[in-house]
Amino acid sequence: MTDEPMVYLLDDEPEMLKALTRLLRAEGFQVQGFSSARAFLGHAHQQGPACLVLDVAMPYIDGLAVQERLHQINAELPIVFLTGHGDIPMSVRAMKAGAENFLTKPVNAAELLPAIRGALQRAADRHSEREELAALRKRLACLTPREREVLGHVIAGKMNKQIAADLGTGEQNIKVHRGRLMRKLGLRSVAELVRLAQRLGVPPAK
């Protein structure tokens, strides 16, 4: 699978789906079209950045329900909604639930393309962040149990002496562990360590 950004299209009108697919392909997007929500939800999504262009007024499962399902399965796809008749309560609901944009049909390329680009940008940002965190987690996993223990105490703001007392060992010992874990994580300051722990959700020791 490539990391090329992918645009998923979901519209129950095959003709409309075809037209949108053509337009987006001509504009150089990687496009995959679905004419039913079930087909889309059952499809294995690629790992790279992607967004969804979604027609709200679909039969059986409407656009908003699709948005909800995607939340449930934790698939963080930015969504561009298309609607036949822009009705305000619906658009408010969609935007609150994190929609990227809400456009009224018939939609101009001049509106649609920037919206899709924006959505893909967001997807790309999220993707790279996700990859960075994955690398950090991998490094965190390299720490020995003792080093993890020391890390918890460090980010709780304790001095080496205190940590030594808490863990029932010598201050010199703590210094060595601390130096090793900083090297393993590739960090230089305690501040950097605290931010990393926050991003990865490591709790400080009590």
Binding site: M16, L20, P106
Partner: peptide, 10 residues
């Protein structure tokens, strides 16, 4: 609206 949207997009 449907045919119009389709025509525009096409």
């Amino acid at each position: 609206n449907q045919p119009l949207a389709m025509i525009l997009t096409n």
